[in-house]
Design a binder for these strands. Structure first.
Lengths: 343, 343
DNA sequence: CTGAAAGCGCTAACAC
DNA sequence: GTGTTAGCGCTTTCAG
């Protein structure tokens, strides 16, 4: 089955005219072609023109892998997320992809399925293939991340900080955000709150859980129960019964997805929202305002997290001074899924 | 600024122990190391063990770019979509990414922003860097696509066919789907229908437009007006006024996003849905059932489109017999955004 | 300003 | 079985 590689091979293996062919055709050395293609130093104008002409005549396009090998850089950045189905991460991806594209870079995505072990392998692998890596909402324990980070090359963290290491991070003040949500519920007269917990490995979850507990401790007469849940619609849906059984009238969901799931599950159980129980989410994903009822949530600048991550990475890649870390303050967005506590 | 490249360079340039170092340390040739690393032919067991030991001791990991260059293949596939913000394409991405990951491949995404010119450049570039390419809902005119395709290497088309070329395609019978939607509206007593048109360059739009026109032609007493719109939430929102002015009581939106936009715009204009106008979307994106009111739509197997695309590509990459093309029949999903025509 | 030559890190014939 | 040799296609000193 030795099919000819020339012109339009059957299954479509790309042809590939090489720099040598161009050099030969133009009667110059490969070095010269390379210089012209890269707009390097001074090449006599006429020669340069000749090279450009034959290059385009032959349809020459430098082989990116050969360049990567020679230059030690691809024009690709990686993004590793726990769950591509989460609109939050989709938004980060878009923000990153857009910004990177504007600078001629592509992005390679990988999802770890919320599994720290998988994430560790993926991060290493993706980092190896790219000039830099953005790790969003890493589910890795601090010590693993600290151990891993130096080997990953240029790295930017989203939704996660690494105190002991100086890696650029874009974070969100989840403690303050979830506190705002809880205060909102308390102000509405709810005294028994349920927190639908995120994945145990999620730093975002840990921050929220801690902030809620400390709030409950400070305030007299506030009852808080933490219900193990997860990060998906399905997880939230499955928690509806537990929410009901908990006797809570106000629920703080780990994120909007979970909130929607709970909303839908409670609806099926015949529980009116917000009449009997109020539900709030987190993130303010695009559809949060269009559900029934529209979701009260804490807004997080998802897209911007992605684009800023690119800026940080870009600085790193150019050995330019690192940009400042930023922590975003979530903004409470009150919609109709929360209301006064029932009497 | 000649920083030492050895052990943990400042900005984090990846170190990179090479095959030569492993070979030297293990006292064998690079070829042997290569053979061991790739589980090739027979290498004496003891030697193999020694190599493996020193490799892992040194933390050796083959450089993917060098492999790509030598082997002529990366383990990466590309995906080009018109709009990453569309949940439909996000789902395709997930389907593709999941399936590809199961076979050890990564995906590189790029979005063309609905711009055919940009798409053409992107497709070529991404194809060059990957083993194969899936082009989703290409906005390229047939002739451009036909001209481009052969140079792209292994290619799979989603939401698009190329009659003159034999490239694997996964399509959806949009004509039948949109017809189902329209019939549903007609059965509810609507006689004046508005179609919120998608991008002119979209094959999906063209198919829907044609099917609707032919339906209107067949049926007596059916009024159809096509309103230029687009593919996004914002486009749909901006069309609300035009919908109202058109006097239509039933609207068929290009996709769910447009339908949501229209829903929201009409709501702001104080128009009750479905009491005064009925709206149907297309795709059945994940949130379609959770909006207010839940959206009537034609369901399309988005995730499956992505995973099947991977299968097709995988066959192509292995020079295995091409799999059969499939055309999915959308399924009408009636929810509460459509109802009886007002009297 | 241009060419020759070495090398990026790996794989694959081809000999021993 | 294992080492030697020659690339994969490009960039980049280093001479001239």
């Amino acid at each position: 089955m030795t099919a000819g590689a020339e012109r339009g091979a059957p299954t479509g293996r790309r042809a590939g005219v090489t720099i040598s062919q161009v050099a030969a055709a133009a009667g110059v050395s490969r070095a010269t072609v390379s210089r012209v293609m890269n707009g390097r130093s001074t090449v006599a104008a006429d020669l340069a023109d000749r090279v450009r002409a034959t290059a385009s005549a032959l349809g020459y396009e430098p082989n990116p892998h050969a360049r990567s090998l020679a230059l030690g850089r691809t024009t690709t950045v990686g993004l590793v997320v726990p769950d591509l189905a989460n609109p939050m991460f989709q938004a980060v991806l878009r923000g990153l992809s857009e910004a990177a594209a504007a600078q001629g870079h592509r992005v390679m995505v990988a999802e770890s399925n919320e599994d720290p072990a998988e994430e560790e392998v993926l991060a290493a692998e993706v980092a190896r293939r790219c000039d830099g890596l953005v790790l969003a909402s890493s589910r890795l324990p601090d010590e693993r991340l600290v151990a891993l980070a130096p080997g990953l090359g240029p790295l930017v963290l989203v939704n996660r900080e690494l105190p002991r290491l100086t890696v650029p991070s874009l974070t969100v003040d989840y403690g303050a955000g979830v506190r705002d949500v809880a205060e909102h519920l308390l102000a509405l007269g709810h005294t028994r709150l349920a927190y639908l917990a995120g994945p145990g490995s999620s730093a975002a979850h840990q921050a929220r859980s801690a902030a809620l507990r400390s709030l409950a401790r400070e305030r007299a007469g506030v009852d808080l129960v933490e219900l193990p849940c997860g990060s998906t619609f399905v997880n939230g849906h499955a928690s509806a019964r537990a929410v009901l059984d908990s006797g809570a009238t106000g629920v703080v969901a780990f994120n909007d997805l979970v909130a929607f799931g709970a909303l839908s599950g409670l609806h099926e159980l015949g529980v009116a929202v917000p009449d009997r129980v109020s539900i709030a989410g987190f993130d303010d994903i695009p559809f949060a305002r269009y559900t029934t009822p529209p979701l009260t949530t804490a807004s997080v600048p998802q897209h911007e997290l992605g684009s800023l991550a690119w800026q940080r990475l870009w600085s790193l890649l150019g050995d330019r001074p690192p940009q400042h870390n930023v922590v975003f303050r979530p903004r409470l967005v009150v919609r109709r899924s929360t209301g006064p506590a029932p009497r």
